[in-house]
Simulated assay, not measured.
Amino acid sequence: MYVIHLRYTGALAEIDDALDAHRLYLEQQFDAGAFIIAGPKIPCDGGIILAATMDRDRLDAIIAKDPFSQQRLVHYDIIEFNATRLAPGLNLPQSS
């Protein structure tokens, strides 16, 4: 699995202009099973995405489709980890 930390590098007006396209991109990735959790940071200077287990090349290709990435509005820090514990009642997504 991956934690993707997005940090805004563009002007907030540029972020706002690209936000609808970014949200559509997120919806597509949730529908495809690539993303599990996503939301803005507090304070709102970026966001966090939890991505399913996949090859890193596939994840990089998915991130390249993000309008924020295409417009160079964010910096991504990507942390891969192996989830070994989970709170009761939650299920880990299957590897794809």
Rank of each mutant, 00 (worst) to 15 (best):
G89W: 11
L90Q: 10
H75R: 12
A61K: 13
Y76R: 06
L73S: 00
D60S: 13
R72A: 03
G89D: 08
Y76M: 03
R72Y: 01
H75N: 10
A61P: 00
R85A: 11
D66Q: 05
H75A: 13
I78W: 06
N82Y: 07
T84N: 09
T84H: 10
I79W: 09
A64E: 10
V74F: 01
A64N: 07
D77C: 01
F81K: 05
D77L: 07
I63P: 01
S69M: 08
Q70T: 04
I78V: 15
K65Q: 14
N82V: 14
F68P: 05
K65E: 14
G89K: 09
L90T: 08
L59Y: 08
R72N: 07
Q71P: 02
A64P: 02
D66P: 02
D60H: 10
K65A: 13
I79P: 00
Y76K: 04
G89Q: 09
D66R: 07
Y76T: 03
S69Y: 02
L86K: 10
A87N: 09
L59E: 08
N82E: 14
A83N: 07
D66N: 08
P88H: 11
A61F: 06
L90S: 08
P88D: 14
S69D: 02
L73M: 06
D77S: 13
I79E: 12
A83W: 00
F81W: 12
K65R: 14
E80A: 15
A64S: 13
P88R: 13
Q71W: 01
Q71D: 03
P67V: 01
N82M: 11
T84G: 07
Q70M: 12
A83P: 15
N82P: 03
D66A: 04
V74W: 04
V74R: 03
A87F: 08
L59C: 10
L90F: 15
T84F: 09
L73F: 01
L90K: 11
I62R: 02
H75C: 05
N82T: 15
P67R: 07
A87D: 07
D77W: 05
A61I: 06
L73H: 05
L90A: 11
T84A: 11
I79A: 11
A83S: 12
I78C: 08
A87H: 11
F81M: 12
H75S: 10
A64V: 04
F68N: 02
D60Q: 13
A83F: 00
A87G: 06
A64G: 09
D66W: 04
V74L: 03
A87Y: 03
I79M: 12
L73K: 00
P67K: 07
F81R: 06
A64C: 08
P67L: 08
Q71F: 00
L90E: 04
H75Q: 12
I79S: 12
Q71R: 15
H75T: 09
E80G: 13
